[in-house]
């Protein structure tokens, strides 16, 4: 039988339970993943009690409440606080999403767990290392590529052609989709993942782009595109309501059509 050894520091231990705020009547329990590589040791689940009457309405508000009132060492990324920058993606109650648009009302009853996006190395606490994810995004060359000289004013596009980009251009690169994909967990170094492939299709289908063949060539191997098995976790979790799996299927159509 195969013997598997878990990597060092991979077991999450029970951590500290922080005291309940005094006099609060509307308390909710949060269990948050904590890891600081500088301290060494294993990651841990710390327990926090939050006064929901004071914390605001979104999960990001809870995290800020904890950081400001209970534990200033808690680390997480955020910037826009309105679902535009993609920085605050994390796993909340077992599901990847962005913390700033995730309201309490959507969450199940009981203890809420919050951990970093799965399958990526952790920089600290809720901050994943997305170096590989960004490199994959760069690989698909997410910009207009043309041979014809640039027009004086702008590259024009018909309304119908512009319509093709809907459901694609809205991606905020939060990485919720790719890090929820079992195929990406397994082959994240070779499979580009739903987010990068959604962007690949966004440029493949752009009527102004002139590098379609080259772009398809860059995806033509057993891993980069074809490790998508239409598991659909990506579409389930995308906080912007996009469907990367459909974009991937469309790229596969383009691959077949160019051979026919």
């Amino acid at each position: 039988m195969v013997q598997l050894t878990l990597p060092k520091n991979s077991t999450v231990r029970k951590g500290k339970t922080w005291p309940k705020p005094q006099g609060a009547t509307n308390l909710r329990q949060f269990r948050i993943y904590r890891y600081n590589p500088e301290e060494g040791g294993n990651p841990r689940w710390d327990t926090y009690w939050v006064d929901m009457d004071k914390a605001g309405t979104m999960i990001l508000d809870v995290l800020l409440y904890i950081k400001n009132n209970i534990d200033p060492t808690l680390a997480f990324r955020r910037s826009c606080r309105e679902g535009v920058c993609g920085s605050c993606a994390m796993n909340i109650a077992g599901r990847n999403t962005i913390a700033c648009t995730k309201g309490f009302d959507d969450l199940p009853k009981g203890v809420i767990t919050i951990s970093p996006l799965p399958s990526q190395p952790v920089v600290r606490d809720l901050i994943p290392d997305l170096t590989n994810f960004y490199a994959q995004h760069a690989y698909v060359q997410p910009y207009l590529k043309t041979d014809t000289p640039a027009p004086e004013k702008e590259w024009k596009q018909s309304e119908a052609d512009r319509e093709e980009l809907n459901g694609l251009y809205e991606c905020i690169l939060c990485a919720s989709c790719s890090t929820s994909c079992p195929s990406y967990w397994w082959n994240g170094d070779k499979y580009l993942g739903p987010a990068a492939l959604l962007q690949a299709y966004r440029w493949l289908i752009d009527s102004r782009d002139e590098a379609t063949g080259e772009r398809l060539d860059d995806l033509e191997d057993p891993f980069k595109l074809y490790r998508c098995h239409t598991i659909m976790n990506c579409a389930q979790v995308c906080p912007k309501g996009l469907n990367p799996a459909k974009a991937i299927a469309k790229i596969k159509h383009m691959m077949v059509e160019r051979v026919s």
Binding site: M232, A235, A249, V256
Partner: peptide
């Protein structure tokens, strides 16, 4: 989303069959 994607894949399979 799941049904639409499933249809894309089914259609793709037919295209591969044609090829």
């Amino acid at each position: 989303a799941p049904r639409e994607t499933n249809r894309q894949i089914k259609e793709l399979n037919q295209k591969i069959k044609q090829q």
